[in-house]
Write a protein that binds this DNA or RNA. Structure first.
Lengths: 346, 346
DNA sequence: TTGTAGGCGTTATCAA
DNA sequence: TTGATAACGCCTACAA
C-alpha cells in the first residue's frame, strides 16, 4: 500500500547542490539560510514536487500535530455541529483530526480506541461522547494519567479533568420560566432518559423554575421519553389523559417537541392557545414548523472551538513541563422565542 | 508537545532479555517466535505498558493505515450520515480516519488540504464534497495522478475516476411517478440550486416522469429554491399565484418540502387532499411531521461503506502494482410513502 | 552559513 | 529461532 511519492529531502538537496540539513532549515525556518541557496532549494522543491513526510517529522519531533476526536451520535444535529466547530478551530491552530466514532456508546470498547490514538501519538484528545449510564467510568484513572491532554465535552464534572459543556440546567430553567411568564400554570415535562446526564440536568432546571413559582412539580407532571419524536407524541397523549388542563409543555429536546406538536395537531389542541410548547436544541427545522418552535439554543460551534482551545493550552503547558489547571466551563444557552409559545404575529 | 510515553521496543527487548527484532516479530506475528520467549515478551509489554509507535511503523512500512476524508456540510443529515458509514467500514478494515472539512465548499482552498493529506501519507482519500459549480475541476488532472487512490462521492461521472453516488434521477422519477399514479395532473417542482449536480439530476427525473405521462413540464411549473425551508415556503406561494390548480409538488429535498408543508398549512390547502407533497432525503423528522412526509430514502450508510470498500480495493491493487478499473456505482434510492401523499389511515 | 553525524522507533535482511 | 545491522525520512547538535 505505498504512496506514489518517493522524492525525499535528499533528492531535493542533491538537486540544489546542498546538504539535506540545509533543505530542512529552509523548510522549518528555524535557522537562517543564505537567500541565494534558499531560492535554489525552493526551486528544486517546486520542480521535484517534493512534499515533506510528516510521519518522519513527527517521529523526530515527538509531536504529530494531530488531535484525536472521539464522539458518537454524529447523525444528530448536536454532535455533528460540535464537530464542525472542533474542526474549524483545530484547522486554525494547525492540527489535523483523527476521528473515532462510538457506534453504540453504551457498550463499545473504549480501550482499543484510546490505544490506537496514543499509538498514533496524538497530541491531545477530545472526548465528545455523551455521558449515559456508567460510561463515564470507562476511562480508568490510571489510564487517564498515561494519556495525552484530554478535554471532555458534555459531561458531569469530575476532579482533575477539563470539561466543557452547555449549562443544561439553566437552559431548561429559561425555557420553563418563559412559560411561567406567559401565565401558564400547569407546565408538564417531557423528560429524556434519566441515565443521560443532560436529561437529569434539564429535569432539574424545569423543577427549579416551577418551584420558584410554587407550581406543581409532582411526578404526574412528568413523562419520560427516549429523545425520539414518537416518544414525545405518546408522552403528550398520556399527559393529557391524566391532566386534561395542562397549558404548557417543556420537551427536553426538539425531536420530542416535534412529537408533542404532532400530537397536539391530531388531538385538536391549539398551540400555543391551548398549550404552549418549548423544545431544547434549536435544531434547524425548529424555525420552520407550524407553528415554529420556541427552543433553547446551545452554542455548539463555540463548544467545539472552546474544547480545542482548552486542549491546545493544555498541550502547550505540558510541552513546557507544567500543567493546565483543570476545570469546568459551562456555556450558557439562550432561549429563542417563536410561534409555539407566543403565537403568530402577522 | 511530547506525549508522555517514552517506553520503546528496545525497553521491552531489554526487559525480556531479547533483541528488538524479536519483539517486533511477536508484535507483527510475521515470523515465528518460540512460545517461551513469546510469553516472556508479552509479559514485559504488559508490565511496561508498552505501545508501539505507529508513526515509526508507518515510516518504515510506507503505509499509514489511514484514510483521508474530505467533506462539507456536516451539520446536515446526509453528509454526517455518510460519514458514519465511512467510519464504520474503515474501522472494520483497520483504517483510521483523518478528517478535513470544507467550510465554504465553493471557495475553500483544496490544494492545501490535499497537500496535508499526502504529507501525512494517507493510504487513500474519500472526496465527499458536493459538486457545486465548477469545484469538480479543482483537483487538476496532473495533481490527481500524484495522489494516492481516491474515491469520489456524489459527483458527476468523470473518466479515470471511481465514483459512488445515489441515483438522484431515478429517485426523483420514483417520487414524481408516485404522484402521477395517485392521479395528480399538475405536478410542480421545487428545484434545488442548479449549480448543484444533484439538483440538476432531480430536475431531470421529475421531467422524465412527467413527459412519460404527457404532463406539463414547462418552466412555469418550476421554482428554484436554495435547499432551505424558507425557499420552499416562498416557492409554493409563488407557484399557487400563477397556477392555483396545482395538485402535487415534488420538492428536491426534505427541508424545502418542510417549507411547502408550512405554506400549505397557512394557505389552508389540505395535504394531501388538495396538494400531495413528496420530498427527497428522508430526514429523520420526515416521519413525524403532520402530515408525515413521503420522501425518497438514500442509502447513505451504504454509500459511505461502499466508498471505503472501493477505496480499499484500489489501495490493495496499487500495492500489487496493478490498478483498479475506475467506474461509477449508482445506488438506487427508494420511495417511502407517508401521509403527505396518501393521507392518514387511522 | 553550511556540512556531517547521530538518532527518533520500527521493520526487514542476512547470518548465525 | 534469534541477533546484528541497515534502512525509512527527517531534524539537530556540533564542527567547519
Amino acid at each position: 500500500m505505498p504512496t506514489v511519492q518517493p522524492v525525499t529531502i535528499v533528492d531535493v538537496a542533491r538537486r540544489a547542490g546542498v546538504s539535506a540539513g540545509t533543505v530542512s532549515n529552509v523548510l522549518t525556518g528555524k535557522r537562517p539560510v543564505a537567500e541565494a541557496t534558499r531560492v535554489r532549494i525552493l526551486r528544486a522543491i517546486e520542480e521535484l514536487g517534493y512534499q515533506p513526510n510528516l510521519l518522519a517529522r513527527s517521529l523526530v519531533n515527538r509531536s504529530s500535530n494531530t488531535l484525536g476526536v472521539v464522539t458518537s451520535g454524529l447523525e444528530y444535529y448536536g454532535p455533528s455541529r460540535t464537530l464542525v466547530g472542533i474542526e474549524a478551530q483545530a484547522n486554525e491552530l494547525g492540527y489535523s483530526l483523527l476521528l473515532d466514532l462510538l457506534h453504540r456508546p453504551d457498550v463499545d470498547d473504549v480501550a482499543a480506541i484510546l490505544d490506537d490514538l496514543t499509538a498514533r501519538r496524538v497530541d491531545g484528545i477530545i472526548w465528545a461522547v455523551h455521558e449515559v449510564g456508567g460510561n463515564r467510568h470507562w476511562i480508568a484513572p490510571e489510564r487517564l494519567r498515561a494519556l495525552p491532554p484530554i478535554v471532555f465535552l458534555t459531561m458531569k464534572s469530575r476532579p482533575g479533568t477539563s470539561i466543557l459543556s452547555t449549562d443544561n440546567r439553566t437552559g431548561a430553567l429559561l425555557a420553563t420560566q418563559h412559560l411561567i411568564d406567559l401565565g401558564r400554570r400547569k407546565i408538564a415535562l417531557v423528560a429524556g432518559p434519566q441515565d443521560w446526564w443532560e436529561a437529569r440536568e434539564r429535569l432539574a432546571g424545569w423543577q427549579a423554575a416551577l418551584e420558584g413559582a410554587a407550581l406543581d412539580v409532582s411526578s404526574r407532571m412528568i413523562v419520560y421519553g427516549d429523545w425520539m419524536p414518537s416518544s414525545g407524541e405518546q408522552a403528550l397523549r398520556r399527559l393529557l389523559e391524566a391532566q386534561p388542563d395542562i397549558d404548557g409543555v417543556f420537551a427536553s429536546n426538539d425531536q420530542m417537541a416535534l412529537g408533542v406538536l404532532r400530537a397536539c395537531h391530531f388531538l385538536h389542541r391549539r398551540v400555543p392557545d391551548d398549550i404552549a410548547v418549548v423544545g431544547f436544541d434549536n435544531m434547524p427545522e425548529a424555525e420552520f414548523l407550524w407553528p415554529s418552535l420556541t427552543s433553547v439554543r446551545q452554542r455548539l460551534t463555540e463548544l467545539g472551538r472552546g474544547a480545542v482551545q482548552t486542549l491546545h493550552s493544555a498541550i502547550e503547558a505540558r510541552g513546557q513541563g507544567s500543567a493546565l489547571a483543570p476545570g469546568v466551563q459551562l456555556l450558557t444557552p439562550e432561549l429563542v422565542v417563536r410561534e409555539s409559545t407566543i403565537g403568530r404575529n402577522d
